[in-house]
Nucleic acid binder design. Structure first.
Lengths: 279, 279
DNA sequence: TAAAATTTGTACGTATGTATC
DNA sequence: CGATACATACGTACAAATTTT
């Protein structure tokens, strides 16, 4: 899928900014339920082994009938995400961390010409999120982030890493969401969620470069340690390195020039203050 | 509604960061259609007098049947947003700029303790968006923003301003969205949309201070001129002023301490470089 | 004036999903 | 878990209104 993309659209026109009339997805309610539960597993709100509320209670919470919920659970169970055990200590349990792509096919689409903009938006938002996280994170947040890095390391150590590309990407998402949650600001979390939703779509469309596990692990480790030490310049620096690398991969995959040149104000503070002192 | 809010929740806990099981809105498809069209009018993608595609074509675009679309149009027509004329040069026309609140009752909710976080998130994102807009905006973008300010000025000149509070707020939204669109980055637009969606919910919940039209107009005017001249420090300064004022209103309405103290890195660059030079 | 073209308005039969029992 | 009843959406065919030619 790489390299040969039909990049005919002119990037950065107004196209797509004023939205067209889009299909109103008349999805079935059990599909909504599937998506909501799958999303929770994927984003790390639910972990393997967790027990969900009973069918009756869950149905009540989601305001759907029990049969409809059962249909959703059936799909999730067949996909291996949930496991249903009956009997006194039975219930609905999370059985797998990896959520198959088919369960979360987002109906929204973006144009090829808009893909590079996702990286630019990360430049705007993510370094600030990391810095805010540094201000407000508690030990539990650091522990969660560290745990996720550790899991990635274990995965990378196995010889079948590439078989688990999807799992690796999901751990990635969880890391960045954990960072967002460390800000203790639910609006920030929600912004990061929508940003990464778009990022995933973009990734599916374009960049299918094999992940470079060791590098990702290294960068995330340094990100965490920069956040831990609340060193704002270090945070900007490592974020800059991270995003620059992603931009480079994107450009290699698709051809140059798609990522707009980075304006001065998006350079890391270290750069900026150096420039200030010089000027 | 002001001043007497039950602000019992402890702010900035993890509550709400890991999402609960939510009602799976099994909304009817015509309601989705209503929302999509109403949203376009409200955000400025559709203007008064615009003619929408014919029923058949619109239904096809939205992938719904004509009867379903008609049900949506009927609701919008009854609300005064659309007007339907038949005959050869008939069709569906936008009839009003102001979209009644009832049409867009977002089903998502946020906690009172999370409201202040919306302002904090604006601090993270909006100044950067304005700066990026300064880099990429064209004359048409400036014209749109100027036009919106002009409309606000006209509205403020009337003696029944307060009767049109909702319209004033909608013009506000349009101004900020126009700024986002000036970045020519659809991901940025989409982030700003979700940010302002939350902002509106927050506003409905808490801050019902009467708008201060003259002040808003003045700040927006200076924002636009700062963007026009691509003066990044001026952009940060006026944005800071704007948001500081909103934070102050919020604190007056609800009691102090809800807005977390602003970390250093969220101070305007001018402040920061002053500090750098001093240190 | 009349006919043609375009667009909304109305009606009904069918399929299917959802909820209740 | 199955069966039944209800609500919803769809497709299609045709009628009515209005403008254009």
């Amino acid at each position: 899928m790489s390299a040969g993309l039909p990049l005919t659209e002119r990037p950065y026109t107004r196209a797509g900014l004023q939205s067209e009339f889009e299909p109103v997805a008349t999805r079935r309610t059990f599909e909504e339920a599937v998506e909501q539960i799958a999303e929770k597993v994927k984003s790390g709100d639910l972990h393997v082994g967790d027990r969900l509320p009973s069918e009756r209670e869950l149905a009540a919470r989601m305001r759907i009938s029990r049969p409809t919920l059962r249909e959703a659970i059936k799909v999730l169970a067949e996909a291996g995400v949930l496991e249903v055990r009956r009997g006194q200590s039975g219930g609905i349990f999370v059985a797998a961390e990896l959520v198959p792509r088919e369960l979360l096919k987002s109906r929204q689409e973006i144009r090829v010409s808009e893909v590079a903009g996702v990286l630019e938006a990360r430049r705007l938002l993510e370094p600030r999120v990391a810095q805010l996280a540094a201000v407000h994170a508690g030990e539990e947040d650091f522990a969660r982030m560290a745990g996720l890095i550790e899991r990635k390391r274990e995965l990378a150590a196995r010889d079948d890493v590439l078989r688990h590309e999807d799992l690796f990407l999901q751990l990635d998402l969880k890391f960045h969401l954990a960072m967002a949650q460390a800000t203790r600001n639910s609006t920030v979390v929600s912004l990061m969620r929508s940003l990464f939703k778009r990022l995933e779509i973009a990734r599916d469309m374009a960049v299918h470069a094999p992940p470079v596990p060791d590098w990702v692990i290294d960068v995330h480790e340094r990100t965490l340690s920069a956040i831990r030490s609340a060193d704002f310049e270090a945070i900007e620096a490592v974020m800059d390195e991270h995003l620059a690398q992603l931009e480079q991969i994107w450009e290699q995959e698709t051809g140059r020039g798609l990522v707009r040149p980075l304006p001065d104000f998006l350079q890391p503070v270290a750069e900026r203050s150096r420039a200030l002192r010089a000027g």
